[in-house]
C-alpha cells in the first residue's frame, strides 16, 4: 500500500497534526512501508474467526451508582493552559 502526499495530508488533518512540508516525503515513505508490513495480514486465513479485543475475553464489571468524587476544580485546573471563571478557555468555538 503506497501512500502519497495528499493521503498523508488527509490523515494528518483527521488526526489534527501539523506536519512540516519538508517532512512530507519522509512521512509518505515511512507510512507506505508500515502499511506494506500491515498488508502481510492479508495472507492469514481468518474466515469465521471472532476478532479478539481483550486478550482474556473478559466481561465488564459494573460500578454502583454512587457519587464518589468531590469538587477538585482548582487542583485539576493547575495544569490548564488557560482558564477563566472556572472554565477552560479555547479559541472561539463556531457552531
Amino acid at each position: 500500500m503506497s501512500i502519497d502526499h495528499d493521503q498523508v495530508a488527509k490523515i494528518a488533518e483527521l488526526a489534527r497534526l501539523k506536519l512540516e512540508p519538508s517532512q512530507m516525503d519522509q512521512y509518505a515513505e515511512n507510512l507506505s512501508s508500515i502499511l506494506d508490513l500491515a498488508d502481510q495480514l492479508q495472507a492469514a486465513d481468518t474466515d469465521g474467526i471472532e476478532p479478539l479485543a481483550n486478550p482474556l475475553d473478559a466481561e465488564q464489571r459494573l460500578r454502583a451508582d454512587k457519587v464518589t468524587e468531590t469538587n477538585q476544580r482548582e487542583h485539576l485546573q493547575k495544569n490548564a493552559p488557560s482558564t477563566e471563571a472556572g472554565l477552560f478557555l479555547v479559541p472561539k468555538v463556531i457552531e
Partner: peptide, 13 residues
C-alpha cells in the same frame, strides 16, 4: 461551550 464574555474566546464547562 460558552461563547460570551471571554474576549473572543470560548469557555469550556
Amino acid at each position: 461551550s460558552l461563547h460570551e464574555d471571554f474576549d473572543g474566546q470560548s469557555g469550556i464547562d
